[in-house]
Design a binder for these strands. Sequence first.
DNA 1: CCAATAAGTGTTTTT
DNA 2: CACTTATTGG
Length: 728
Amino acid sequence: MKSDIAYENDLNPSQLEAVQYYDSPLLVLAGAGSGKTRVITYKIAYLINECGFDPGSILAVTFTNKASNEMRQRVNDLLGADTDVWIRTFHSTAAKLLRVYGRMFGVDAGFSIIDGRDQVSVVRQILKKLKQDTESHKPEKYVALISRAKDSLLDAQQAGESEFSTDPLFYDIYRRYEDMLKRENLFDFGDLLFVVVRGLKRSPEALSALKRRFSYILVDEFQDTNHSQYTLVKLLAQPEGNVCVVGDDDQSIYGFRGARVENVLNFRKDYKGAKIIKLEENYRSCQNILTASSSVINRNPGRLGKTLYTKKGRGEKLSFYRASSDRNEALYIAYEIQSLILGEGYRFSDFAVFYRMNAQSRVFESTFTQAKIPYTIVGGLRFYEREEVKDILSYIRLLLNPMDEVSLRRVIAKPPRGIGQRTVDRMVDSTIALGLPFYRAAEEDDIFASRGRKVKEFIAFMKDLEGQLDTGTSSDLLTKIYEETGYPEWLEEQRKEDKLHNLDELYNAVEEFSRRNPSSPISEFIEEVSLNQGSGEEGTAGNGANNRVFLITLHNAKGLEFPVVFIAGMEEGVFPHFLSGERPEDLQEERRLCYVGMTRAMERLYFTAARIRRLYGRSIERGVSNFMTEVPGELLVCREEKGFDSPKVSYYDRGIEKKRTAPKSAVPRTRVPVDDLEENTRIVHEHFGKGRVLEVSKGIAVIRFDDGQVMKFMLQYTPIRKDNDDGD
DNA sequence: CCAATAAGTGTTTTT
DNA sequence: CACTTATTGG
């Protein structure tokens, strides 16, 4: 196929240089919105079309599945066909290598992958065995330590030798954790990379095999690489230098999971003759947004420093709104979205709401549902992490890997079948002692028999299901599991409609998978969902397939862009998060996160805060985030919520002391008095205060508020009423 | 020894 | 609020 890509036309001079350069290792310092994905995708096309690289020998790594899917799509569009280029996340690259070259790496390629919550339950198990209370020794803390050790390529012994932690208990826990995972052929996320890197270091054959396999390597979001990821790239790309990394030190936001910005800063030292190209023209944001975000990020010391510029106009000023409560913060955003749609012709999909914590999404979900604003939640409690979905998947995992104690413990009492903790402990002990999967061990050890019929029944039906594993389709197997476990009936008894619905969704997902990959075993489905944690049907509401507002954490927002962005929860303690307050580098990472959020916005950028926020069942009053003071005042329009009666306290929050609060539904209550609105009527809007009606037609009112703002509202959904001040 | 219920508690970000 | 552990009744 002849190449007809207009490189010179489609790319600016720096981008073009980055695409065409391949004489030595290349570091592209790409500012926010400077077209870095464009560079990577065009470079892949260029390598194939102009330099004669075999597509299958190019490896392009990203951090999220979302990013890799998008990149594949764009490469396919450029090349006009489905490409063989390896476009994968780091973890999926490592998993694939281990599945294919398991023997070379000395691992059993039938391993299962466990997620963070499984890790916690393993550590909890270990702490129990060690008779340590989980109050003072939090499992999560040890999981984090273990993960960081693996990121740093330290096993339990090496961690001990290098005094990785000051907690002496840690090494014992880590060692037991390793033993258990090994015994059960389980890999956590950190293992995937750790085992590959260790294998490459130990085995020159493996290393040279992979070097032959991959002739060029591209890495996206290089500032987010941890030590093991950095080492993997280095092993594959040194000394040949066939590598291009793209990153932005200002967007490093994953320090908490071991990312090292220094990897960007040190690239030139580690790769001899490395070329550095900066991309500084921003194609995304208006000048005001760019200026404001630069002003924020400038507070951070030790940056490489870039000067971003744009040819776009100044655009609107940024806006800050402080609501009285989290609920009213969400309402404000809902009205603002409706107003911009009516007044400026935006669509729902032009908007995104960013927040620091997943817990903040709930209030937006309920408020948007009420306001009839369709939304999509990205991240949060993902589909494949939901209890009922994980339970069913665990049955499959247990069938695929009968040594998997984590899955066994998960499913054994779901639904309850008369087998408890104590019996499982015995089953597991026996399994360990005999080194056999539990349903083989049952034949060797009458401990199982002594527990009577219940255990035998469980084993019998698991054996039966095992027999079904290789016969029939994946969806047949799922049907069988639904039938034999009685899980759906169990949910039905408890009236868990949502959960039942999720099992239907799961069935659809499996069926869809079978259709897409007719010859693939169900293990590949499990692999996909284990690594692709973000995919699947997310929580959605409203109709219209793609025209939805995005609700998303700041971390997940990286790499995306939206015409209008709301950054919610701009409160000290929420953002920056109070746990990041201790060390200055943590605060700097929060600031980079703020920068990432701000630079997603193309045309309009709003900050919002709540004076009082309900979180973890408590209502707490908080001050405004210090980040707000870092946005230049002349670029920011600030407003505070105005209530119906009092300028400060809203109506909704009178019952902060856990007394009953105002009626749940704001919509019907506010609809009443507006029917007779006409031109020139004085009104009060719950959030924007007093104003005058300029125009009313088809249920939409145009209002000029006393502070000069003109906004449009759908009367049906807006808390507005006639101003009766004169009368009283 | 199992399973349902009550009480208590900690509060981030993700592959 | 959501999730873990302690308790009690079977």
